[in-house]
Each structure stands twice: as structure tokens, then as C-alpha cells.
Simulated scan of single mutants.
Amino acid sequence: MNRLLTTIKTEKQFTDLNDIAKDFVKGKSGQGMLNVFVRHTTCAIKILENEILLLADINNYLDKQFNNNHNYMHDKIEIRDVPIEERINGHSHMKQLSFPTSEQIPVEDGELLLGTWQTIFLIEFDPIRDREIVLSYTAL
């Protein structure tokens, strides 16, 4: 299988995807590239160091730049063509602007070629939700 669609329930802002990625490429021979992609607009995929204070710094920075008390046009549900119960999440969309929706990781003989401190994260900017992640592998 060269593609996997999986659903993850985000229970925190930073969800480590390394184990899912490692399991997906296990047993693949030779060299290739793994792409990890999220199918949503209020979360992201990013390789970061899995260090709790760094993750707190990132969260604090984003909260200062894009707080949820700002007057975002996206939050004006009454003038948009959407259901009235639509989420008020303009700040989540703005936070996502700082991050990609996918990352590519080189693979050699079934092993991710990540650096010592690198972790593939799903970063959640909206409340706890189910998120669809697509992992795809291309042999080189």
C-alpha cells in the first residue's frame, strides 16, 4: 500500500505522528519519500522538536499574534452563507497561515530519515475534533 487515509481525534494541540509514519514505511525497501498531509484548514503538519517548553512557546506566540478576541470577518456568521451553528474560528484559520498542511520525509530501507530531535506533528488550532491524515509513499 502506497497510501493510507487515517482519522485521528485531536485531544491536544500537538499530536505526535512519528509512530504512525514509522509503521506506514516499515518494510519498504530502497529509497523513497513519505508525504504526510492533513485534509483540513484549521490544523497543520509540521516537523518540530518534541520539547514541552518549545511547544508552549509556539502556542503562546500564536495566541499573541492571532487571539480569539479579534474581530475576524470569517466569524461574522450572520453575513456568510453558512449554517448558523458554524464554528466561530477565524483565529484558527489565521494561526494555520503560519504552518504547512504537509511535510515530506526521506525514507531509506523502511526508516524515516528524521533528525534526532525531529517529530512530525499534527498541530490543532480548533477544539478537539476528528482529523483526516493522508500518508503517501513514493519510491525513488
Rank of each mutant, 00 (worst) to 15 (best):
R129S: 07
N35S: 14
L114A: 03
I58L: 12
T10Q: 09
I120W: 00
L140A: 14
F14T: 00
A21W: 03
K26T: 12
K26S: 13
T15V: 15
I133L: 06
R87E: 07
I105V: 13
I105W: 04
I45F: 06
L135I: 09
L97M: 10
N67Q: 09
I123L: 04
K46T: 05
W117I: 10
N60S: 15
A139T: 15
T42W: 01
K12W: 06
I79T: 09
F121R: 05
E111Q: 12
I45M: 06
Y61I: 13
V82P: 01
Q13V: 08
N2G: 03
R3I: 14
E132Y: 07
L48H: 02
T42N: 06
K76P: 03
V82C: 07
Q31K: 15
N71A: 14
N60V: 01
N50Y: 04
L48T: 01
R39G: 08
I79H: 05
P83I: 10
T6R: 09
K64R: 14
L62C: 02
M73K: 14
G27V: 10
T119P: 00
M94W: 04
E11G: 15
R80I: 08
Q118A: 03
N18M: 00
H93T: 01
N71V: 10
N18C: 06
D130R: 11
W117M: 11
V82R: 03
M73Q: 13
F99Q: 01
L114F: 04
T42A: 14
T7V: 11
K76Y: 10
V134R: 08
L55G: 04
E103Y: 04
Q31V: 09
G30L: 08
G115T: 10
D75R: 04
N68S: 08
F66S: 02
K64Y: 11
I123T: 04
I88W: 08
V36K: 03
M1Y: 11
Y72P: 05
F66E: 01
R87I: 04
E103I: 00
E51V: 06
T119I: 06
Q65M: 15
K9S: 11
I58K: 01
N18D: 06
R80A: 12
F125W: 09
E86S: 15
T138N: 15
S98D: 03
S136T: 11
N69Q: 15
I133H: 01
E49Y: 09
L34Q: 00
R131H: 06
L135N: 06
L140Y: 15
V82I: 11
